[in-house]
Design a protein around this nucleic acid. Structure first.
Lengths: 207, 207, 207, 207
DNA sequence: TATGAATGAGTCTTCATTCAT
DNA sequence: GATGAATGAAGACTCATTCAT
């Protein structure tokens, strides 16, 4: 009987579908302005059905966030493995991150949306679960720097702090994308990121 | 007649008062949980009166943001003038910024709250007005770098880009404060900021 | 300024009005089937207005109950003072109680409705407040029996227990009114009450 | 073929099973909070199946009530047959009733739940069917009193009315159990029942 | 100017019932 | 017979905004 299997697959497909719609709405209208009724309508489902797949409105968005962080993690790991030198690995991380913020912009926005949403919406329970995934990524990137140091390719910096610095920088600069037209005066934020990365590597690479 | 004057002054005082209350509530409860009725009650005014001074709930929070940016601008200018060397001026900017984000955390949060809130809450009209104030600050900081370059104290970097890089970094790292307990593993984000600044200056200062 | 006064009076009138509508609906449809929307509609008010006068659906019905118990208390006290002999006072209590259950049947039903609604709907807080009013009535009735005993009109019974017995009996029998057509086979429950009271007094009065 | 038989037996067993679950839930959570989905889950059946055995949610609870009254009837008959004197038979009825209200409190509550629920939940059709079973119990008890009168053990009272009085009293007092902590001031309601019964028998027994 | 009672559309969530498989 | 996913009307409650006083 593939019936049970088919059911399971359909269930997952439906879940994905709802999540997709929710993501779209969240990013178009923001967290609070996105209502369950809207999600239902856009998903062409009844409200009740939404609640069959998710316990809560909260649950929907938490799922979205986890999904996003997982995906980011994968992208970074993949990018790093494809790179040869340690310096290239660092560049790869940045590219992966920036690219993720663009191609998966919906996910990226959801993540930062909640990063900056201090405990107001999410209960601690969900917050920490998500922070943990973030930590995993952080540790992974630190390892890359450490490897570079051990390989003699990088100077003996504080790997952890350097990583946090890099990450903060990326987050901060990516946020400026929304201001390309105004504050950046039409200069592509990507060029700024590239500029920052080059300078960052200057502090790191042994010459 | 000083009567008209007095009235104008009273009007402004009232406006300030409402804004103060709104800020308090916004930061305690978040944007959505702050209701006009609450503002009215805490301000010991009637709801109607609030609408006499502000067209909208939206308007209240936009005013809050402008106020905040103005204040930030002042702080930075003051900090810079107090510093002697160009390097100190840069350090002063950072301190001022981080301090502002802590001591005037209410204002800082309001600013970033909306910075990261893509057109969700504010109509474009308000957004650009705010970006413009941001630009002014940016330009001011660029001038400090340029002055340092001209003085031979700094290397011939791209002042504008270096400034944006710095600002992005600061913003990004300040956001991590919320994660001191989790992702930063109890390390003070301030130390991270210091670490980043030292490294940043390494890319800038002529040795 | 009678303005503030008038406001207060209007406010109370409105409250009464809502309570009246709520009572009507509660008794016609039961607690759960009575919705705030219905109350609003029947009261020709908007839902929001209902919530201006009552914090909760719960609050509405609690108010109803207290009102009812207060009224009952008054009726009993009045009836007792009008009676001459102790025996007459006891009869007066019963009459008052039964009459209350008929003429103020709405109130009576609300009271017993909640008496029998074990903590499911009301939080303890409200339950005990109401029980307290009930206790007051109970004590008052006990005093009548005690007075009769002291006057040598009644036998030396346990006044408190005799009172509870009487009250239980009345409650139990009044409940049968709903079954006049079926279980009582068309005999008026009032006659049954009369019969019970006569026999009850036989256990009490010194002959 | 025993097949048809077996099927009938299985059907009945299933019905009993559902009823059992429904009773459990009803008493744990109250009528309104008990949902058909819950019943299905606890019964390890699908919702659809529930609707195969019962037309309605209403139907389930009506069946529950009938079951309960049947059981009560049995208990009373059994208790009476075990008693020797007529007085003991009356005491036996009371004990049986009070005990039923305690040990089978689930059933008792269901019965009174709906007794006091004027046509709110049940359509007349169901109400009268239930009243009829109640009547049967009433008549049976009357017979006990009549037998006592005929035996010269009881005074020549109106057997029917005396029975209703007794029953009303029991019901009324049992309701007070919920108020042991408050209105009864920690005195066991059972003692009150005993007290009432003793006094009741005083009006009945020939001395 | 100032008030604050009133509005009502809109929020999240529940649940009895149906029906295709 | 049995399943359980899907429905959608209905529930309690909120809140930005208006307007008669």
């Amino acid at each position: 009987m593939g019936s049970r299997e088919r059911r399971a697959r359909e269930k997952e497909a439906r879940t994905e579908h709802i999540l997709g719609v929710a993501r779209t709405l969240l990013l178009k209208k923001g967290l609070h302005a996105t209502t369950v009724n809207q999600i239902a309508k856009l998903a062409e489902l009844s409200v009740g059905t939404i609640y069959l797949y998710f316990k809560n409105k909260e649950d929907i968005f938490a799922a979205l966030q986890e999904e996003g962080l997982m995906l980011l993690n994968q992208k970074i790991v993949a990018a790093v493995s494809a790179a040869a030198t340690q310096q290239d690995k660092v560049r790869a991380i940045c590219s992966a991150y920036v690219e993720f913020s663009e191609t998966q912009s919906s996910y990226y926005d959801v993540i930062t949306y909640f990063l900056s949403t201090s405990e107001q919406f999410f209960p601690k329970r969900l917050k920490t679960r998500i922070d943990r995934i973030g930590s995993r990524i952080l540790i992974y990137c630190s390892h890359v720097l450490e490897a570079g140091i051990e390989a003699g390719e990088f100077r003996k910096v504080d790997a952890r702090r350097h990583t946090i610095w890099l990450w903060g920088t990326l987050n901060g600069l990516i946020q400026f994308r929304k201001m390309e037209a105004t504050m950046l005066q039409k200069e592509s934020y990507r060029k700024i990121v590239q500029y920052a990365l080059d300078n960052f590597l200057d502090t790191l690479v042994v010459k």
